[in-house]
Design a protein around this nucleic acid. Structure first.
Length: 875
RNA sequence: GGGCGCAUAGCUCAGUUGGUUCAGAGCACUUGGUUUACACCCAAGGGGUCGGGGGUUCGAAUCCCUCUGCGCCCACCA
């Protein structure tokens, strides 16, 4: 065979990905096997792969590959999200570069541009996932604006409307002046920042007296329609029933009283601007105040801004503050730290704005979604996220689902009038017309009187259906696919989108299929740099995943990412971890090269090889059980680390060293075959983590038909564990370690053989003696009944080992070593005896604990005896 | 303002119901080692009063209280 001495990851990875694709291993069709399904969290269609995607998709691929090896019908559905706001913003920016203003385009023209952009950039991210080794069923690739998925979205909208769960209302919503659309509450991020708090005097009507209010937004003064104090605040009793004059616009507004006002804050006197603050709106509603909206959609001042009309709100704020100062109405300013709502997408400060929007009533829908997470029907990993989930669900508010954008699913509603409710919900104008005639009581209506709602739906209103819609389970709830694949098994996502996405998928799942959308939710952490900062494009602290793959191989990067990513904890990413992954690939490759280079003959199997193989088989089974346990608990990092240690330490450092034939010696066929079988099992359990490397080696080991590729091999079967063998090995390993220590201390090269005598106080098994002889390069291993004079010694448990020295030994050094050990043992004995002489311990502790303490005491006593005897013989 | 979580070796983290093999792993570090797979390697070794204080218990990294320092989520205080 032609085995290269260096492992070339890039070349190997491209080769096997192409091979897997060619043989269609990733594709799934419903059959008799148990399904194992994951739907990908669809990345933004025009996005590029970042480290978060790398982590997230590596985990999904590990899970799906493992399931495939376990003989399940593994199906990983990929796809992308149209990402309404984000994509529209990109298209707007691109058009702007070309000198085109979105407002000059018709809806159809704009959407054509958006599709062009989507076709150009969409799918890049999916190609990048292939480099990572993602074994997605690419034939099933979906896009949230595919015809069938769009139709599902519209169907759901109409259904929820018919159930009375969707309504249109004139409400205070979050307005993003940059994107010029409303946002859901979840899309508003509260950011702490320091602003100025302005104290402004309002003259009391008909008096020379003033009242002072405090505000962070002096520009909104122009929209003030009242001044409010707390009725319990006796400082302001004189103000009752009076009116004040709003500065600059000189509007005369009433002084009202409301419990909402915090007596402690500012001056205890609040200006009320119902159009621009949620609380003010509520106060306004209670007191029937006029609502004066002073802003345009881009957050510049409108005609109510008077001589400030047309200025941006931020500019106007400064200018108005200046004007107030000039008027002598600005008492003072002070710094204030508070939280300001900003747009998740555009980062600009959100403007509360009253407008007519579409809402989904959430409260009743949320009920089963809450219950089934709390009772673990759907499991969260880690479970700590149940708390915040519950908190959100219990306080869930109606979901603003309309967006003033073009790119997305246009709301299927047709207006026949200007009123908030002058509409009917229908797929087409033709279907809408009779309904409109009926609802409006106007038989004269024609199709030309109908206008479709121009708003589109929130992006999440399509992704919340993803686990169902990718299997066409909305339009055809009884189709074979959805019945087979749904509910899916796992969803792997970031806690940041728990409310945006996870919660809503659970809600829609129960509403439309009456059951959970997935059984497990695995929350990944945030990928951070060494300084603990979140990796982001804007900070420029994120390595390019594709560069990493080029440098370390996809397998290396996968291992690097998983080495440090416990579920739900942030991942402090350090590129050197990828180096560790690459080193591991190299290690496995070289182990294979060693085995591959052996000359196999039909000689008899040596006893030590038989034992070594039997030991590893048990060790493998024991470790496999641990790995399965980790997987069961979604502790992927631990599963990987366990696999890593098994292969590096137990397989390479111990087993291969134990059975390795001497220089230019052949190996017997029995051992060789056993080692190949062992290697194959190792490759199987390593495959989910390092798919490329393992397939490469697998295919080198033997000629494989496509049916016998590693990717579709069978997960190792469970066999009984010989625990005595493992125990005996551990003992032998300590002996070998003791020999190595003496060699190092005395500078005895490995190639020089040594003799070893044993005083077998511990009655230790002799099973591994041949192996001790081999790995210790022992010329003769003798059992003895008495101490050996003039020898170096070490102890394992209560066994004593003697390495006779030909020349003189360093008596002083031996004495000090033994004395140190004696002192330690005596101290240890003392603490054990103290415990045993405590009556309450003996009475209170479980029997086995007491017994073990007694055993410790006896062992220590025996050890002290032998140590003393050794010392005596030296002195 | 409400809620949740974290603090264990230089770094990143395990440590399940308090008790055998409880103070661990990987990396890093120190020392030695290359004719016989791998220096992306092998071997040996050092390193922690388990954040501070108090309590419960025969016994606490583990349970309780408290303090300190971080992190996250939610929330309409101008």
């Amino acid at each position: 065979m032609n085995i290269p001495s260096k492992y070339d990851a890039n070349q190997v990875e491209d080769k096997w990905y192409a091979y897997w694709m060619k043989h269609n291993y990733f594709h799934s069709e419903p059959d008799e096997r148990e399904p194992y399904t994951i739907v990908i969290p669809p990345p933004n269609v025009t996005g590029v792969l970042h480290m978060g995607h790398m982590l997230n998709n590596t985990i999904q691929d590990v899970l799906i590959r493992r399931a495939r090896l376990q003989g399940k019908n593994a199906c990983w559905v990929p796809g992308t999200d149209h990402a309404s706001i984000a994509t529209e913003a990109k298209v707007v920016a691109k058009l702007k570069e070309e000198g085109i203003d979105k407002n000059d385009l018709t809806r159809e023209e704009f959407i054509a541009h958006a599709w062009e952009w989507t076709h150009k950039h969409g799918g890049i991210i999916l190609e990048q996932l292939k480099k990572l080794g993602a074994s997605c069923d690419w034939e099933r690739t979906k896009f949230t604006m595919d015809d069938d998925l769009s139709e599902s979205v519209i169907d759901v909208f109409m259904d929820l409307y018919s159930k009375g769960l969707i309504y249109r209302g004139y409400r205070m919503v979050n307005w993003d002046p940059e994107a010029q659309t409303t946002l859901s509450d979840e899309e508003v991020i509260h950011v702490e920042r320091t602003d100025k708090l302005y104290y402004v005097k309002y003259q009391i009507e008909g008096e020379d007296n003033f009242v002072t209010i405090a505000t962070t937004r002096p520009e909104t003064i122009l929209g003030d329609t009242a001044v409010c104090v707390n009725p319990k605040d006796d400082r302001f009793t004189a103000l009752k029933g009076k009116k004040v004059i709003v500065p600059i616009c000189n509007r005369v507004v009433p002084v009202i009283e409301d419990d909402y006002v915090d007596i402690e804050f500012g001056t205890g006197c609040l200006k009320v601007t119902p159009a621009h603050d949620v609380n003010d709106k509520e106060i306004g509603d209670r007191h029937n105040l006029e609502v004066i909206d002073i802003l345009n959609d881009d957050a510049s001042l409108n005609r109510y801004g008077l001589h400030h009309e047309g200025k941006d709100r931020v500019v106007a704020r400064k200018d108005i503050a200046k004007e107030l100062e000039d008027l002598g109405l600005l008492v003072k300013t002070e710094e204030i730290t508070h939280k300001v709502g900003t747009s998740e997408r555009t980062k600009v400060v959100i403007e509360p704005k009253i407008s007519a929007q579409w809402f989904l009533k959430m409260k009743d829908l949320a009920k089963p979604a809450l219950d089934n997470v709390m009772n673990d029907t759907i499991q969260f990993h880690p479970s700590k996220f149940k708390n915040s989930y519950r908190n959100w669900m219990e306080n869930v508010r109606d979901w603003n689902i309309s967006r003033q954008l073009f790119w997305g699913h246009q709301i299927p509603a047709f207006f026949y009038g200007a009123g908030v409710n002058d509409f009917v919900v229908a797929k087409t104008a033709e279907e809408a017309l009779p309904l409109a005639k009926q609802k409006s009581n106007n038989q004269e209506l024609t199709i030309n009187n109908l206008t479709q709602e121009s708003d589109v739906l929130d992006t999440w209103f399509s992704s919340w259906l993803w686990p169902m819609s990718v299997f066409d389970g909305i339009r055809h709830p009884d189709n074979k696919e959805v019945n087979y694949y749904y509910p899916t098994n796992d969803i792997v996502t970031a806690p940041e989108i728990m409310f945006f996405w996870v919660a809503r998928m659970i809600i829609s799942g129960y509403e439309y299929r009456g059951e959970l959308p997935f059984k497990n939710v695995y929350y990944t952490g945030i990928v951070r740099d060494k300084q603990g900062r979140k990796m982001s494009k804007s900070l420029g602290n994120s390595p390019d995943p594709i560069d990493l793959i080029k440098q370390y191989g996809a397998d290396g990067v996968r291992v690097g990412m998983l080495m440090c990513s416990p579920a739900g904890n942030d991942l402090p990413f350090d590129e050197s971890l990828c180096g560790q992954g690459k080193a591991f690939a190299n290690k496995v490759w070289n182990a294979f090269r060693l085995i591959d280079g052996w000359d196999v003959t039909d000689i008899e199997q040596p006893e030590y090889a038989k034992i070594a193989v039997a030991w590893y088989e048990s060790k493998f089974q024991q470790t496999l059980a641990t790995i399965e346990d980790h997987f069961g608990k979604y502790r992927i990092s631990d599963a990987l680390m366990e696999t890593y240690k098994l292969i590096w330490n137990d397989f390479c450092s111990w087993l291969l060293e134990m059975i390795k034939p001497g220089y230019q010696q052949p190996i017997d066929r029995t051992t060789y075959d056993a080692v190949i079988a062992i290697l194959e099992n190792n490759l199987k359990i390593l495959h989910p983590f390092m798919p490329f490397l393992t397939e490469e080696i697998w295919q080198h080991i033997a000629e494989r038909t496509p049916e016998n590729a590693l990717i579709v091999a069978q997960w190792p079967e469970v066999k009984p564990i010989n625990e005595n063998l493992i125990k005996d090995f551990d003992f032998a390993a300590e002996v070998i370690s003791g020999i190595r220590t003496i060699r190092k201390q005395k500078n005895i090269a490995f190639k020089d053989t040594i003799d070893l005598s044993v005083l077998n106080n511990d009655n230790a098994s002799t099973t591994f003696d041949a192996i001790i002889g081999k790995l210790g390069n022992i010329s003769s291993l003798n059992y003895t009944n008495e101490k050996v004079d003039g020898a170096l010694t070490f102890r394992v448990k209560s066994n004593e080992y003697f390495v006779p020295m030909k020349g003189s030994i360093d008596v002083e050094a031996e004495i000090s070593k033994l004395t140190e050990e004696l002192n330690y043992t005596e101290g240890f004995l003392k603490s054990v005896q103290k415990k045993l002489s405590n009556k309450r311990f003996v009475a209170g502790a479980p029997e086995q604990v007491v017994a073990s303490e007694k055993k410790k005491e006896a062992d220590a006593l025996a050890k002290i005896e032998t140590l003393k005897a050794s010392l005596a013989s030296l002195e």
